[in-house]
């Protein structure tokens, strides 16, 4: 059974058809990239998968369950987590507490009136583990807004991982990074998404081709081509529509 399945996804914004029938399947443990020119509907598709809004028509199935109309918090509890293109962290709060928010959510410790998260050794250890994974163990107590840009992106990744998801949705994880930062980020993403399903939306073709097991090309609201990186690289339609124009 695929972990995620999109079936005939349509999305209209007051008459403007952004997506006109998107279908794909994602196997457990697969890294899947969605690419396409600006305005192809990548971000809209991403928002529909993560629950920011519902499709006009069509269904999203996660672990066999129809989640098309489920709000984001319920999707997260089912084991799905997303990152944000524009860094979306808790700015005034320490790096540690940023990640702890997700770690305790995973354990169901969200709105308890008596239990104190910082008294739970298991949660604290798990949070430190995630900080190690994303390389922020030395910034534990730093307020998030004091971090350098690359570190904020790492924290964005840490928060995304904090609910121990089975499916990770990454929205342009290397946006705005220098070449060196991008290389480090790619290595980190490869490490932390090991054996997890992952969907990446990305503009940087080097990132896409070095991370993805499979690539879909979105063009004017439909999937133009879907296949292994080599197939996509050599696909004539893709070259015509996208790759040939502005990349490599």
């Amino acid at each position: 059974m695929p972990i995620l399945e999109a079936k005939g996804i349509h999305k209209d914004f007051s008459g403007l058809e952004v997506l006109t029938g998107v279908d794909f399947q994602l196997a457990a443990g697969e890294r899947f990239a969605i690419i396409g020119p600006n305005g192809a509907g990548k971000t809209t598709l991403f928002n529909i998968l993560s629950g920011a809004f519902s499709p006009t028509r069509g269904n999203v199935l996660f672990k066999g369950e129809d989640i098309s109309r489920k709000p984001p918090h319920l999707r997260n509890r089912l084991g799905m987590s997303r990152s944000f293109q524009i860094t979306n962290v808790f700015k005034e709060i320490s790096v540690f507490d940023n990640v702890l928010a997700g770690v305790r959510s995973r354990e169901g410790l969200r709105c308890h009136y008596l239990r104190r998260p910082f008294k739970n050794r298991g949660l604290l250890e798990r949070t430190d583990e995630i900080l190690m994974q994303v390389g922020l163990e030395n910034e534990r107590d730093t307020p998030a807004h004091e971090l350098a840009y690359g570190q904020q992106r790492a924290l964005e990744m840490g928060i995304t991982l904090s609910t121990a998801p089975d499916l990770i949705l990454l929205d342009e994880p290397t946006a705005g990074m220098s070449r060196q930062e991008t290389e480090d980020a790619v290595q980190m993403i490869r490490r932390v998404t090991e054996s997890k399903a992952c969907i990446i939306i990305e503009h940087d073709m080097n990132v896409v081709f070095s991370l993805a097991d499979r690539i879909s090309v979105l063009h004017y609201g439909v999937i133009l081509a879907c296949g292994l990186p080599e197939e996509i690289r050599n696909d004539q339609r893709v070259k015509d529509a996208y790759l040939g124009q502005d990349n490599q």
Binding site: P71, H73, N76, S81, F84, K91, I93, G102, I159, T163
Partner: peptide, 11 residues
């Protein structure tokens, strides 16, 4: 601080 992010963390 950030209600939107909380929703995507299961809250």
């Amino acid at each position: 601080e950030n209600e939107d992010r909380m929703r995507f963390l299961g809250y």
